[in-house]
């Protein structure tokens, strides 16, 4: 069932205070995700998507990083107000996270089965026998073949795809209300990626969990997400449901991303890349962050920061071009 909000992030700001100045890695990000919904956060390296995820779990190293403003509402509480020990009860229990590289997050000296039973005993107070039985069940849920034999293996005995399944099993151990997946398939081959995406889709449907999927791959977004947030240089530049975003991208950055993708459907000899590179986060431009690379840049874009506003029902964009002009622009192309 969708419609019940699981997480609501309001005006989140996470900055890094370094010798050279202040890096505004996440600068006023707002979004919400409902139960049984997959929210995609897309953007290129350095846009702040991973820091946003880590800020939700309060995993940003401090110093140098600090969440300086905003609210993170989850199950009736503002996570930013919780004490560290209260927060520990949320992490891995009500909100779990899976990462791009499972090998870095699994303990290499511990049998994978024990790593999951540890979570169960810690958060759910299960005894050894119960925890082991539940772990076996979880291994079956994530389609690990011959799960009985695999419990006593070490992480290095698993392939990349299987390790990611172990991570997912661990993340699901406490049936979290929210699962955050940070580039979960980026290190995997396409055929294995397809298997993992299939698994995530099943988790959404069976457990009615909310999922935040962080990725740079618009193909993955189209495959699995219900709602999409596009980030650029620390800000959300566009937000819409997945159909509207791909049918009618409003922000020039989103449009640029879609145009630079090689796809079997629009095969052209020349791709249309976005010129230039993302800005240095220490030297953010005064007006719109995307203005220096934008084909539709006007004087106003250089002088004033555009507001994040609704340009069509349920479709938000941070751009000075209004929807009427944008339609004209699209028609002129």
């Amino acid at each position: 069932m969708t419609g019940t909000p699981s997480l609501n992030v309001v005006n989140l700001k996470t900055h890094f205070f370094i010798r050279e100045g202040v890096v505004r890695a996440v600068d006023g990000v707002s979004f919400s995700v409902d139960q049984g919904e997959v929210l995609g956060i897309v953007g290129e390296s350095g846009c702040g998507k991973s820091i946003t995820a880590r800020s939700i779990l309060r995993l940003v190293p401090n110093p140098p990083g600090r969440t300086v403003d905003g609210r993170i509402e989850f199950e009736g509480k503002d996570l930013l107000e919780l004490s560290e020990s209260e927060m520990r009860k949320v992490r891995g229990n009500r909100i779990s996270m899976i990462f791009q590289d499972p090998m870095t997050y699994l303990n290499p000296t511990m049998k994978v089965g024990d790593q999951i039973t540890e979570v169960l005993r810690l958060h759910l107070d299960m005894n050894e026998t119960q925890a082991r039985a539940r772990t076996l069940e979880l291994f079956r849920d994530v389609n690990i073949p011959e799960p009985e034999g695999r419990l006593d293996n070490y992480p290095h005995e698993f392939s990349g795809g299987m390790r990611q399944r172990v991570m997912i099993a661990m993340a699901l151990a406490c049936e979290p209300g929210l699962l955050i997946a940070d580039e979960p398939t980026t290190a995997l081959d396409v055929t294995v990626q397809a298997q993992i995406l299939d698994l995530l889709r099943r988790i959404r449907d069976d457990l009615n969990s909310a999922i935040i999927l962080i990725t740079h791959d618009l193909g993955v977004v189209a495959e699995i997400c219900d709602k999409v947030v596009v980030m650029y240089a620390g800000q959300v530049v566009e937000q819409a449901n997945v159909y509207d975003l791909f049918d009618e991208p409003k922000h020039p950055y989103t449009r640029g991303l879609l145009d630079s993708l090689p796809t079997p459907e629009h095969r052209v000899d020349q791709l249309k890349p976005i010129p230039g590179q993302p800005p240095d986060l220490l030297r953010i431009p005064k007006g719109c962050n995307f203005a220096p690379r934008c084909a539709y840049c006007m004087q106003k874009c250089i002088d004033e920061e555009p507001p994040f506003r609704e340009v069509a029902p349920g479709h938000m964009s941070r751009c000075w071009l209004d929807s009427v002009t944008q339609t004209a622009v699209a028609a002129a192309e």
Binding site: V190, T191, Q193, A194, L197, D217, L218, G219, V220, V221, A222, E223, C225, V242, Y243, F246, L258, L261, T263, P264, E265
Partner: peptide
């Protein structure tokens, strides 16, 4: 299998 596994940037 390989061609069908490529994610296509088109939700429809």
């Amino acid at each position: 299998a390989l061609t069908s596994a490529i994610p296509v940037p088109n939700p429809r």
